[in-house]
Computed example of a mutant assay.
Amino acid sequence: MSNLAARLRVRRAHSRTRRAVSKAIDTAAATTVRDELITIAQKHGYQKSKARV
């Protein structure tokens, strides 16, 4: 059971990080900063989630 709990914790942490990265990209003050954040996020495997319509 602890393995399942550990996997859930990792998944929640990954989701929190992905949301934080997405928020940082959305609120970047300059386009160069935004581009750098996107580049770093892509390098680490985080993709900006698509906007929901």
Rank of each mutant, 00 (worst) to 15 (best):
R18C: 13
K23E: 11
R7M: 11
K23P: 02
Q42M: 14
Y46S: 04
R11T: 04
I40E: 10
R34P: 10
A30Q: 08
G45A: 05
S2L: 13
T17W: 07
Q47A: 07
Q47Y: 04
N3G: 06
T31H: 02
H14E: 01
K23D: 08
K48D: 03
A51V: 05
A6Q: 13
R7G: 00
T27E: 15
R18F: 03
K48L: 05
A28H: 00
D35H: 05
A30H: 08
S49G: 10
V10H: 04
R19A: 07
R9F: 01
V10L: 09
L8F: 06
M1S: 06
R9P: 00
E36M: 06
V33R: 14
D26W: 01
A24S: 13
R19M: 09
I40V: 14
L8A: 13
K50Q: 15
Y46H: 12
T39Y: 07
I25Y: 00
G45R: 12
K23V: 09
T39R: 09
L37R: 02
N3I: 12
L37W: 01
R11A: 15
R16F: 06
G45H: 05
I40W: 04
A51D: 11
R18T: 10
A30K: 07
Q42G: 13
A41K: 01
R34M: 06
Q42C: 06
I25L: 02
A41E: 01
M1Y: 10
R7W: 08
Q42F: 13
A28C: 02
R11H: 03
L4T: 10
K48H: 05
A29R: 02
T17N: 06
V10F: 01
R12D: 15
R19H: 06
S15M: 07
S49D: 14
A5D: 04
H14P: 00
A6E: 13
I40K: 14
A41S: 09
S22W: 03
K48S: 09
L4I: 14
G45S: 07
Y46C: 07
A29F: 04
K50A: 15
R18Q: 13
A24H: 07
K23C: 01
A5S: 11
V10R: 06
A41M: 01
S15G: 03
L37C: 02
R18K: 11
A5E: 07
K23L: 15
A51T: 13
V21G: 02
A28P: 02
I25R: 00
